[in-house]
Amino acid sequence: MKITSIELAILESPYDYGMADDASDSRGPKYALIVKVSTDEGIVGIADCDSHPHVMKALIDAPRYLKSFSEGLKYAVIGENPFEYDKIWTNMYASSYYQGRRGAAIHAMSAIDIAIWDIIGKASGQPVGVMLGARNHERIKAYASTLFRRTPEAMKEAVRKYRALGYRAMKFGWGAVAEDPRRVVALVAAAREEAGDGMDIMVDGMWTPDVKLAIRLVKELEQYGVFFVEEPLHADNLEGYRKLANAVDVRIACGEQLGGLYEYKQLIAEGDIDIIQPDVSRAGGLTETRRLVAMAEQAGKLIVPHAWTSDILTAASLHLNAYQKHPLFQEFCTNDTPLSRDLVAEPLKLDGEGYVAVPAGPGLGVELDDEAVRKYTVDALKVTL
Rank of each mutant, 00 (worst) to 15 (best):
V159T: 01
C333S: 15
E231V: 05
L261N: 09
P305W: 10
V293H: 06
I312D: 02
D180Y: 09
Y262P: 06
V77Y: 12
H319Q: 06
F83N: 12
L221N: 00
S95F: 04
V35L: 12
V356A: 09
G133W: 11
A299N: 05
K382N: 15
V344E: 06
D210A: 02
V378A: 07
G300S: 00
F329V: 03
Q223F: 02
T4L: 13
L286P: 11
I6C: 09
R182Y: 05
D86C: 11
A322N: 08
A111H: 12
K265G: 15
E153Q: 15
D48M: 08
V218M: 01
E41L: 10
L320G: 04
A144W: 03
R290T: 14
K382S: 15
A178K: 14
T90N: 15
T309Q: 14
L73R: 08
A191Q: 01
G259N: 13
G103L: 07
S340N: 15
R149I: 00
S310W: 07
T151C: 04
A47N: 07
R290L: 12
V55R: 10
V55M: 14
E256Q: 06
K36I: 11
G285C: 11
A111I: 11
T337G: 09
L339H: 05
D48S: 09
V35N: 04
A158R: 07
A360N: 15
S26G: 13
P29T: 08
L381G: 12
Y376I: 07
Y167R: 03
E353C: 08
G255M: 04
L132Q: 06
V226K: 00
G285T: 11
G196E: 00
F227V: 10
R290A: 13
N246K: 04
M109W: 12
T289R: 05
T314Y: 03
L292W: 01
M295R: 03
G363F: 12
V203W: 03
P209C: 03
P29Q: 07
E153F: 12
K67Q: 08
E12C: 13
E179Y: 09
Y31G: 10
Y75P: 04
V344Y: 04
P152F: 05
E220W: 01
L364I: 11
A296S: 14
R64E: 09
A253Y: 00
Q266E: 14
A372N: 05
H326T: 13
P63M: 03
G365F: 06
V55Q: 11
E371L: 07
S68P: 00
L11S: 11
E367T: 14
A62I: 05
E220V: 01
I201T: 00
I116T: 12
G42P: 07
K141W: 02
D379E: 14
K141F: 02
A322D: 08
A372K: 13
E157G: 06
T337P: 05
D272F: 07
A154Y: 08
A123Y: 06
E220A: 02
R183S: 04
R192P: 00
A158I: 02
Y98R: 08
P181A: 03
V44W: 10
E84G: 12
A345G: 05
L328Y: 04
K30W: 07
Q277E: 03
K375T: 14
A283H: 07
